[in-house]
Amino acid sequence: MNVVTPAPLVVDGLLVGAILFALGLVGLLARRNLIVMFLCAELMLQGISLSLVAWSRHHGDWGGHVLVIFVLTVAACEAAVALVFVLQAFARTGRLDSAAWQSLREANLPRIVDRELPATDAVPPRFPRLTPAGVAPATDEDALLEREQV
């Protein structure tokens, strides 16, 4: 019988993987922004990857490593397809809200409406936005004139 007590490092790696997995799960279940949901799913994948590598370390085997490589590949595929879906969903509803699709609910069930949200106390940060492809960008003549240099 060849029993090897897991090294403390391996145990710690498994623990970190578990934490990441649980965090990702919470995010996936709770967050409503489709993209954040995806980020959380990726976080879960990271937790899995960590566990795999830890086990690989324990067993002295390449299997975990190889599997993580495939996880990376599948994650790339998933991201490619899923992001396209997210874009399509956004094109239809104008929102990245997973609850925007609750018209798929059973007939005669009441619609779930967000309760009244308090006004945001701080001005939310502005991030750069990309113009959707094929649509002429809205040009602000005054803003152009005010720019000192390009």
């Binding site: 991201a79 609850a99 949200l117 939310p124």
Partner: peptide, 30 residues
């Protein structure tokens, strides 16, 4: 992801980013 966010993100903080879906249950489950 960031590209998509920039394509799709509305100005300001969206209401659905300010609330969660069943946060307690999700947290407990996690």
């Amino acid at each position: 992801f960031l590209f998509v966010l920039m394509l799709a993100q509305p100005a300001g903080l969206a209401p659905y980013d300010r609330v969660s879906n069943e946060p307690l249950l999700a947290a407990v489950a996690g």
